[in-house]
């Protein structure tokens, strides 16, 4: 279970370019739930995700994973609990290393990295079996540099890598945004399959409202660093993109009205 409590992050505090990215954001994700997160540019989606992963320190608030306070833990020591797929396909893998080396690196996530061989023969069989499920023919290319693969292929491998070790929460940061529509669809189907198979607690940031409603169990909308909309279950099933847009306009309108009052 992920519990984010009253998170606040301000960039460049005390300067003319001060940005309040998160303004007391709170969100609870129960174990096994798949949450999609939407919001406009600058709503705080990526900031929130980076706060959970540990890439960005929070100014105040707390982040709990299965009850453990991880707020002050560095990224690498959170990695036993948090798995992540980046937006940029190049960012999630080491291009100088081979496919099997990348997968070995991910398989040892959260384990002591001692002087045992990184890639053993029995691992290769396991990796091959995992890669075969992609249907991309990568199972025959274990010793190829991962830099030789296309963006979509690398993103698919990144997803496999994220699921090699059990994790308490899987973070997906617009992981289909940099791909062409067909590949994006493939990676999205793969995401749904892996999450369902391993029953992962998942938070997926996306800029596509369609995607946000089609996949997962619950949709959360961020605006100005806060959760402004939170739908799940039957209410969510009945929603379509125009409904979501309408709700968003309403929320923003109210916000504007608030601001107008304050300024007036």
């Amino acid at each position: 279970m992920l519990s984010a409590q009253n998170l606040k992050i301000t960039f460049n505090p005390g300067t003319p370019i001060e940005t309040k990215a998160l303004q007391g954001l709170s969100l609870e994700i129960p174990t096994g739930q798949f949450v999609t997160v939407i919001g406009t540019n600058g709503a705080g989606k990526s900031t929130f995700l980076n706060a959970v992963s540990g890439d960005l320190p929070v100014d105040s608030g707390a982040i709990l994973i299965d009850g453990d306070d991880v707020t002050r833990l560095p990224v690498w020591s959170r990695a036993t609990r948090v798995a992540r797929v980046f937006q940029d396909p190049m960012a999630g893998t080491c291009e100088d290393l081979t496919i099997e080396e990348n997968m070995a690196l991910a398989q040892q996530r959260g384990q002591r990295r001692g002087l045992r061989r990184a890639v053993r023969v029995d691992m290769r069989d396991e990796f091959r079996a995992h890669l075969a499920t992609l249907g991309l023919g990568l199972e025959d290319r274990l010793t190829d540099r991962i830099g030789l693969l296309s963006g979509g292929q690398r993103q698919a491998v990144s997803l496999l890598m994220a699921a090699l070790q059990p994790s308490r929460i899987l973070l997906l940061d617009e992981h289909t945004a940099a791909l062409d529509p067909r590949t994006a669809d493939f990676v999205l189907q793969l995401t749904a399959r892996i999450v369902a198979e391993k029953q992962l607690t998942t938070m997926m940031v996306t800029h596509s409202m369609r995607q946000a409603l089609d996949i997962g169990d619950r949709t959360v909308m961020l605006h100005q660093g806060q959760v402004v909309l939170d739908v799940a279950g039957d209410e969510r099933k009945g929603l379509d993109v125009p409904d979501l847009l309408h709700m968003f306009e309403k929320v923003r309108g109210e916000k504007l009205a608030d601001d107008a009052l304050l300024l007036g």
Partner: peptide, 17 residues
């Protein structure tokens, strides 16, 4: 392998623990 990964992609390496 962890040392080589660190040089190649530090951000990814950290997220892999």
């Amino acid at each position: 392998l962890a040392i080589r990964a660190t040089g190649s992609n530090p951000r990814m390496s950290r997220s892999q623990g």
